[in-house]
């Protein structure tokens, strides 16, 4: 059936089964490839998007459950003040190796900084442990989150 959802502030209509996960609506129906498929089971976080500001796994979120909620994806983060600060920190610290997980990492980090602008290590652990980086660029991911949090404090 037809679903209209708001993605990065824009209404998009798709004709799909209600149980199609948001990830596959984004990737195959709307050609938004920033959100990544890794495990299909909510175990890796590569597909992380925001639904009303909350980080969720796109592969575990049926389109029928989204309703009128606002969906944000990595493609929308440059227009988000917190997301943009994180992207800049990621660039400043040369975080990526293969880069495949980084969209999901940035989405989880954005949700974290919105909730907790100055996270300590335990906060970062709690928010980011669901996001696998197979290349293990974790040290720089953590540093980038702290850098972006610091930049937020100054601005």
């Amino acid at each position: 059936m037809a679903y209209t959802i708001k993605i990065n502030g824009v209404n998009r209509t798709v004709e799909v089964d209600g149980d199609m996960p948001l990830l596959w609506v984004l990737r195959d129906e709307l050609d938004m490839k920033g959100s990544k498929f890794g495990c299909g089971a909510g175990l890796c976080g590569a597909c992380t998007v925001h639904v009303d500001g909350v980080a969720v796994r796109g592969c575990q979120t049926p389109i029928s459950s989204v309703g009128n909620a606002a969906v944000s994806t990595i493609e929308g983060m440059a227009a988000d003040p917190v997301g943009r600060r994180l992207q800049e920190a990621w660039l400043a610290l040369d975080v990526p190796q293969c880069g495949y997980c980084q969209a999901g990492q940035i989405m989880s980090a954005t949700a974290l900084l919105r909730q907790t602008p100055h996270p300590n290590d335990a906060d970062i652990d709690a928010a980011m442990t669901g996001n696998v980086c197979r290349c293990c660029s974790y040290t720089r991911i953590r540093a980038a989150i702290k850098m972006a949090a610091g930049a937020g404090a100054k601005s």
Partner: peptide, 23 residues
């Protein structure tokens, strides 16, 4: 010198880069 990955700007903004993104 510490030169940063040339594709980082595309990676952090979710642009198509990987095999799985091919259309």
């Amino acid at each position: 010198q510490p030169i940063h990955g040339v594709e980082n700007p595309k990676i952090v903004t979710g642009q198509k880069l990987f095999g799985i993104d091919t259309v």
